[in-house]
């Protein structure tokens, strides 16, 4: 911390938490999207109704 630093300071913990939360959410979204692409390639549709009929 520099000599001129003066309170109020920002709490770094929530920022760390949010950043981690974003990373986790992005990875989950990436996995979900890649699964959707795979399902689309194999079934030719991503409509839930049509997919249910295939089962």
């Amino acid at each position: 911390m520099g000599a001129g630093a003066r309170p109020p300071y920002t709490n770094p913990i929530p920022q760390g938490l949010i950043l981690t939360g974003i990373v986790v959410a992005v990875s989950t979204t990436a996995l979900a999207l890649s699964l959707i692409i795979r399902i689309w390639k194999q079934c030719g549709t991503i409509e839930a109704d049509e997919l249910r009929e295939m089962d």
Partner: peptide, 24 residues
């Protein structure tokens, strides 16, 4: 995350659907 991927890993249609359901 690793569980969702492991469910879908065989690459079959049903496996990917099950993995996606699990993921949601």
């Amino acid at each position: 995350l690793s569980s969702y991927a492991l469910v879908a890993i065989s690459g079959e249609r049903t496996a990917e659907m099950a993995g996606f359901k699990y993921l949601i």
